[in-house]
Design a binder for these strands. Structure first.
Lengths: 337, 337
DNA sequence: CTGAAAGCGCTTACAG
DNA sequence: CTGAAAGCGCTTACAG
């Protein structure tokens, strides 16, 4: 398991009978190396199983670590996982390796700011070339500003206030508007809303799209049908159950994200209620659960690919103003009825 | 964005009026530093925003990179994603950072051995302290042997032939046996099998558990009811559809993994067939789709935690024979009937 | 085309 | 308790 120290360029040089500089040139595929010399060195590299120590290379000023970091809250979320996959694809193709860090939540479900600070310091210590962040909140400015000063940062899904950086967002407001419009077009007037945080980030945009769509056609928003701050599918199920039990229940439920949709689907299915479920994010098997479902979907892998693309461009020297990409979303309709 | 070179220990030393050695001692929290000196240095560290260059530290022989790598085939798979989360939790707690690499598959769905070789080389170049691998095949020996010689490797989900290393497996055979037994106990005699590769890895164990359970109670295996080599839920759905259309259809379908289960659930649901679905892996909402379902479940996050735990122990110096952990699985039963 | 030498930012014996 | 010096494994001007 511990097989001595790995061979160094010095070992290769000795083996090939050349200088260390020459080995370096060969390893770096530089020009101006005699073909015969090159072959000799390559033979020694192979014979010794030499692999250049990247830490040593990196030490020289101007040298890159060829490392990018991806900071997410929780990889358990399918959005983050697929995003990470897209990031890895593009990063690897461009010669970067991905460092994965999750910020997590503390026991109370609150953001762990100490951990976030520590992550930022760690990335700085490791001199990563660039960072992709899916921020947990809009107020992360202070935390990521120090990072953004030293390395390009691309934000995904939300842009913290006051930080400079490229950003990749979903068309949250537009998607919500279309989804709500779809319900209204089908005659729904009492539409419930089950969601998480309505104050910031994607949740805020989704709620604003919902309101805008209702307002545009003069359909009233019923305050008693709005449920915010739900964090899990269980909480969404309970909330939806309560809504269905109302004297004048909704005819449709708008769900803010996939956990909300899962909860709502369960509640509607169990109640055997004649209610349409409309949700943001893809939910597997949704269509067979409830008579009629509409979902706003998009490809998280693509979000990751685009975000990594922006970062790679920055690292390649694109010296332009911060850019913003809005990934389009699609409305998919399912149902037996 | 590019704010000059970051401060070095030399800058801190000058600022604090001490030597570089002293700065190093303070930064490394060594003893034998005068309290006043320490404070002075800490003040300078803070003033300059010094963060020790980890590449430079690493260069010294015997110094660790505090980096572990996780190699998976595809993070899109929820198993890998949750596993990665478990790994990250334990690694971070132990002071390691996680490098994420996916091997992927080529266009034809075949393993990309060149990419795997390149990943191994990359990890060696970066001098990672240890590696967690979810191998794509049993014959990966040659590929990971070079790695295992230089750094501890923990294999997850399958152990390639001929490689030394710790391994964390699921109780595949046991889970399959119980699941099959559950079906037999309920009177099923014509049980279909829909699965992927039956030759190696988890698939082989699951199939052998299935056979063993049938054999134990003298229930015959019906060759016309076995479908292997299915790779997606679509392929599983088609296969299940065919099985249901047989003149003498099965009364239950055993599914090898979650994609198979999703496909089978859809097929049974659409056909309105009175068939029980039994599957390995958790499937969200499975219970509301089909009248009766049994699933073998486990916690992939826990698998990741345990694998990372083994690795961290190795890195802490545990010099013991290769260890094997088998993560238990649970049988969960759902249904309206 | 090739080599000797300096230097990247740290850590670590070795003195004191 | 503190500092001067050597050295980790590379890269890169500078000569030749």
């Amino acid at each position: 398991m511990a097989a001595g120290r790995p061979p160094t360029m010095r070992d290769v040089a000795a083996h090939a009978g050349v200088s260390v500089s020459t080995v370096s040139r060969v390893v770096n595929a530089e020009r101006y190396v005699d073909a015969a010399t090159r072959e000799k060195v390559e033979a020694s590299v192979a014979a010794l199983g030499f692999l250049r120590n990247e830490s040593a290379r990196t030490l020289r000023p101007g040298q890159r670590t060829a490392t990018v970091a991806l900071v997410v809250e929780d990889l358990t979320n399918p959005f983050s996982a697929e995003l990470a996959h897209g990031v890895e694809l593009v990063a690897a193709a461009a010669g970067y390796v991905v460092l994965l860090l999750s910020t997590g939540r503390d026991a109370a479900g609150e953001r762990d700011e100490v951990r976030e600070q520590e992550i930022v310091a760690e990335l700085l210590r490791r001199r990563v070339d660039g960072v992709l962040v899916v921020p947990g909140a809009d107020d992360a400015a202070g935390r990521y500003a120090a990072l953004a000063e030293r390395a390009p940062v691309v934000f995904v899904d939300r842009l913290p206030r006051g930080v400079r950086g490229d950003v990749v967002l979903l068309d949250n407001a537009g998607g919500s508007r279309r989804l709500t419009g779809w319900l209204v077009d089908r005659g729904h007037r009492r539409i419930a809303y089950v969601g998480g945080d309505r104050r910031s980030g994607p949740g805020a945009k989704r709620y604003s799209g919902f309101r805008a769509a209702l307002k545009a056609v003069g359909v009233p928003e019923h305050r008693e049908l709005l449920r915010f701050g739900r964090r899990s599918s269980e909480e969404a199920r309970t909330a939806t159950g309560e809504l269905l039990a109302l004297p004048d229940p909704p005819t449709a439920v708008f769900c803010d994200n996939n956990r909300m949709t899962v909860g709502a689907l369960l509640a509607v299915h169990r109640a055997g209620a004649d209610v349409v479920v409309a949700g943001f994010d893809h939910v597997e098997l949704a269509e067979v659960l409830v008579d009629r479902v509409a979902l706003v979907t998009y490809d998280p892998v693509d979000v990751g690919r685009r975000a990594a693309g922006l970062l790679v461009e920055r690292l390649a020297g694109a010296d332009v103003a911060p850019r913003k990409i809005t990934v389009p979303v699609e409305l998919a309709e399912f149902g037996n009825r």
